[in-house]
Computed example of a mutant assay.
Amino acid sequence: MKVSKSNAEHYIWGDQCDGWRLVNHKDLSIIHERMPGNTHEVRHYHHHARQFFFILSGTAILEVDGERIQLGSQEGCEIPPLIAHQMFNETNEDVEFLVISQPATRGDRVLAEN
């Protein structure tokens, strides 16, 4: 079945950020996310899930285990399990990106100390 933002399950997270579940299986999750300007995710890690963040548009900062990595359009970063990470949009523009998780992260998220 063809999937897009228009027919995928939508949810709101954080401070008015959007997510669309493009693939939603316990062994694989692909989510299209949108973060408005000047928003951020909470710092966390996953016990089992390996994730790949891929920027579709805009510029984001992905903090990975204390290192700040600037990601622009068409750039990505892989995060292994047990590594604390946090996404920031420090611009005034929206950033849109894909989050690919294997296995899915439901029940696997642990808040990390700042």
Rank of each mutant, 00 (worst) to 15 (best):
I61Q: 01
H40I: 06
S57L: 02
R34M: 05
H25P: 00
F88A: 08
H48C: 08
T39V: 14
H85A: 02
V110P: 05
I30W: 02
L22W: 01
R50Q: 10
W20Q: 08
Y11V: 14
I12C: 13
R109K: 10
P80R: 07
M1T: 11
Q16Y: 14
G107Q: 03
N92Y: 13
G14W: 07
I83P: 04
Q74L: 04
V110C: 09
S6A: 10
A60F: 00
W20G: 03
S73K: 11
N89V: 09
K2D: 06
L71Y: 01
D15F: 06
M87V: 15
E33S: 04
L22M: 10
G14K: 05
V42Y: 01
R109L: 09
Y45K: 15
A112F: 01
R106V: 12
H10K: 15
A104H: 08
L82H: 15
M87A: 13
V42Q: 06
P36L: 10
W13E: 10
N7F: 11
L56M: 01
D65L: 11
E90P: 07
M1N: 08
S101A: 13
C17G: 15
N89T: 08
G76K: 07
E41G: 13
D65W: 11
K2Y: 08
W13D: 12
E93V: 11
R43S: 07
I12F: 15
Y45N: 09
R109Y: 02
R109N: 03
E9Q: 15
H25V: 06
S57V: 04
G37P: 11
F54R: 00
L22S: 02
S101V: 04
H44D: 07
G37K: 02
E113Y: 07
E96Y: 01
L111E: 13
W13C: 14
L82F: 11
A60R: 00
H32T: 03
V3C: 03
Y11Q: 14
Q102G: 09
I79T: 05
D27K: 12
Q51P: 03
L111P: 04
Q86A: 09
R21N: 15
A8H: 09
L28V: 12
T59G: 02
N89R: 08
Q16C: 14
N114W: 09
R106P: 00
R106E: 09
L98H: 01
Y11W: 14
F53N: 04
N114S: 14
E41W: 08
L71P: 07
I31L: 06
L98P: 00
S4G: 13
K5T: 13
F52M: 06
K2S: 04
S73V: 05
S29A: 10
T91S: 14
G66E: 13
E67V: 14
I31G: 00
G76F: 00
E96T: 14
V3I: 15
D65M: 12
V99T: 08
